[in-house]
Design a protein around this nucleic acid. Structure first.
Lengths: 206, 206
DNA sequence: AAGTGTGAAAAGTTTCACAGCG
DNA sequence: CGCTGTGAAACTTTTCACACTT
């Protein structure tokens, strides 16, 4: 078990590199230098090399990195070789918007089921996948061995639902509710707060 | 012009504190200690105090911070006292989903107009605000003095549209396109890549 | 000659711990 | 006495610069 400390941000960037590599591969490129890849990824060359070095040696000195091999190695690291099932809880305004958005599916995640306190109302929003009552969350998550959840419930329910998801076996939560969840350390939470991102921008404009 | 260095992350947290303060205020609380506010904001008390200290002295020793005053002071810092107009470009899957989501509006940003290469198709998605042709971007942004934009166009158009927005006077872009934009330093870009966030989670689940 | 891999320096951020005020 | 404000210490992350490989 390797326990050398890999910066958390390096793992984020890994996903960025992965996407850039895909694009290069579609373009038919076979190798790429740290300088070129860093440029499109929006980082400095040295950082790219260091990030990759945390996981091994993949480049050839004087040449660069093999696009295809490096891509599949990152995919492997990210646990993306196999299709990941994901559930979404809270098919309200934002939740159903995300379901209609096909971006997750396109990137290899399958949103297999949505849950809502009022499944009928959610269905009427034109959601294209099954919507069940939130009471069935535990049963479904256990049965399908789901490890990832997208959480879009109102702030006041977020902690409660998160607890239930975790108890049922969920290990990673993409949290769109504007609340800091308190969960065991082994659960990874990723907060995405859209209004907050806009607010942050408005600080910088004069 | 104050040029002491305020950590970028501190500004993010300011938005979080702001939201927590609003909640406390709705609850009728008049003062709050750094310990209590830090708890709900998900940070350490010392960090909260240090973050606030970058901007001035707002607390009373022995007592804590005045909820209402502190809230409005942060709102002021964030440039949120006045309603900010925002445009959205790219009313495709994700873009129209974001328009239906009322979260921005609720937090005090007014999405005044959307633009798309095909306004008719966009309108048919049930978007509730005006959708114009992308050709009118410059004219509108200049006329309405819009400083913030939400960008949801396909990767291949993102840089092009961003350049046009900036040329017309936009100073902050919330970028949902999976591309690192290259723009002048005075423009602030905030990348939100939803698929990437999920990918990041999948690294940590075993 | 071109370009990776990496130790060491620099920069940035968080945490500590305590003086000082109400 | 409780709690803020803050300098200094600890830690994390980024950048540099160059040895080394193909």
């Amino acid at each position: 078990m390797e326990k050398i400390d890999i910066p958390k941000k390096a793992i984020y960037r890994l996903s960025i590199y992965h996407r850039c590599l895909q694009r290069l591969q579609d373009n038919g490129q076979e190798t790429v230098s740290s300088t070129a890849l860093a440029k499109v990824a929006g980082v400095k060359p040295a950082q790219l090399r260091k990030d990759l070095a945390y996981f091994g040696q993949f480049g050839t000195r004087g040449l660069g990195y093999p696009v295809e091999t490096l891509g599949s190695m990152i995919r492997d690291l990210l646990g993306r070789e196999r299709l990941q099932p994901v559930v979404l809880v809270g098919a309200g305004n934002l939740g159903s918007a995300l379901l209609r958005y096909q971006g997750f599916q396109k990137e290899g995640f399958e949103v297999v089921c949505a849950f809502d306190a009022d499944p009928d109302a959610a269905r009427s929003r034109g959601v294209g996948i099954p919507v069940r009552s939130e009471r069935e969350i535990e049963e479904f998550v256990r049965a399908e061995n789901v490890k990832l959840a997208i959480l879009c419930v109102p702030a006041s329910y977020a902690q409660l639902i998160a607890n239930r998801l975790v108890a049922a076996g969920v290990q990673g939560i993409l949290n769109f509710s504007p609340v800091m969840l308190e969960l065991p350390d082994e659960v990874v939470v990723n907060n995405v707060d859209l209004a907050l991102e806009l607010e942050h921008l408005s600080f910088f404009i004069r």
